[in-house]
Write a protein that binds this DNA or RNA. Structure first.
Lengths: 126, 126
DNA sequence: AAAAAAATTGAGAATTATTCTCATTTTGCT
DNA sequence: AGCAAAATGAGAATAATTCTCAATTTTTTT
């Protein structure tokens, strides 16, 4: 993997937040650093960061993702209305079952996201 | 709400399966009954069936939905080398813990993917 | 330091699921 | 039959993501 200013920008933007940003938000931030960076470049670099273990891709629906520079094993929650993503604390028994499953099927890790309408969206709907 | 052949077709197709079909699958089935039914009509009628309490809309991500029952809550496996994805059968205890967690935190569903180098990639690496 | 090879880029087209627009057709009521 | 409200099909619009490709940048080789 060669060096590129664009990849540096994408990575530094991703590390700058704990908010599980979308590719599009990252794109907007990167433009402040490299005004004519392209959206496809952001997607490509995010995928490469994920492939090289420097970031994780949090699925928030079919073919929809959020990114996170925190690569430790943790679960997420996502709102199907606004798309917001947060860290979700799960019960000890679920945690144990997940780690057991990993051990039993020789997995290196997992990605678990729960879908639930967030407080703000629920309030808006009534 | 007035009568319409199209709505009858959408409703009968929806009742014909226990899977959680996508609007597009329903569209395909409806075309067998009314060849020139439009996709927008299917979406409109699904929304009306939901509004009148005859069907439910299951969110499967931001702005993505499936209609009717069985969210088909199943897990996936994915190879971090080649990217291949497969259905992953998990232990009953994990399944139970997942369903419990959903119930306890009021989630509508979840997405769980395990990462593991697939047989083919393992063979190539040696 | 120049040349050649490999990796990366930006722009824009393509794709997929869904919603919107609008002129035309159906339906329900009198 | 006549009229208004409801519903329709076609296609445009939107949003997130991926793909294509010629041009540029980085790395390696000389």
């Amino acid at each position: 993997m060669n060096y590129s200013r664009q990849r540096e920008a994408v990575y530094s933007v991703l590390r700058s937040t704990k908010d599980h940003p979308s590719a599009d938000w990252i794109f907007g931030e990167c433009k402040k650093i490299i005004p004519d960076i392209g959206l496809a470049t952001v997607y490509r670099n995010l995928d490469q960061l994920v492939a090289s273990g420097k970031a994780i891709k949090v699925p928030v629906g079919q073919d929809r993702y959020r990114y996170d520079a925190d690569v430790s094993l943790h679960c997420h929650g996502a709102c199907p209305v606004c798309g917001r993503v947060w860290d979700e604390h799960v019960s000890p028994s679920l945690n144990e079952a997940l780690l057991n499953e990993c051990k039993n099927n020789n997995s290196e890790g997992f990605s678990l996201t729960f879908f639930r309408v967030c407080g703000e969206c629920k309030a808006k709907q009534g």
